[in-house]
């Protein structure tokens, strides 16, 4: 079982609130999954060190540095819930100087 603190930690990493009633379930379920995941440590890779990030064999390509068609501001803002003119409104992310 995971502790309540550990559940809080992983939930915080994933930017998720956890309801009081959910702790018990997550403590067990996350423990179960992590126990399964730990099996990866025991896999014998026979000294292999090379990693595989993606099956793609594409070489790095660069796109032309030219201006192409762009999305309109109204399209971009269409799905945002809080807007003001051409801007998306979010809660303040920097504190007042006296609060620092």
């Amino acid at each position: 079982m995971l502790s309540k603190n550990e559940v809080d930690h992983v939930a915080d990493l994933a930017r998720l609130h956890v309801d009081e009633a959910e702790y018990e379930l997550y403590e067990k379920q996350l423990y179960d999954i992590l126990s399964e995941i730990k099996k990866i440590e025991d896999v014998d890779v026979e000294g292999e060190t090379e990693i595989m990030i993606s099956p793609s064999t594409n070489k790095n390509t660069y796109s032309n540095d030219s201006i192409g068609p762009m999305l309109s501001t109204s399209d971009v803002l269409k799905n945002a819930k809080h807007t003001n003119g051409d801007f998306i409104v979010v809660p303040r992310v920097v504190a007042d100087s006296e609060e620092i």
């Binding site: 992983v10 990493l13 440590e41 292999e48 595989m52």
Partner: peptide
């Protein structure tokens, strides 16, 4: 939650990097 945990701090090496090697094999 599991995914964020796996990629955090030392776990990235312990689990993620190891998994990429197993994937190669």
């Amino acid at each position: 939650m599991i995914g964020s945990y796996i990629l955090s701090g030392k776990n990235a090496d312990k689990y993620y990097r190891k998994a990429l090697i197993v994937r190669k094999k």
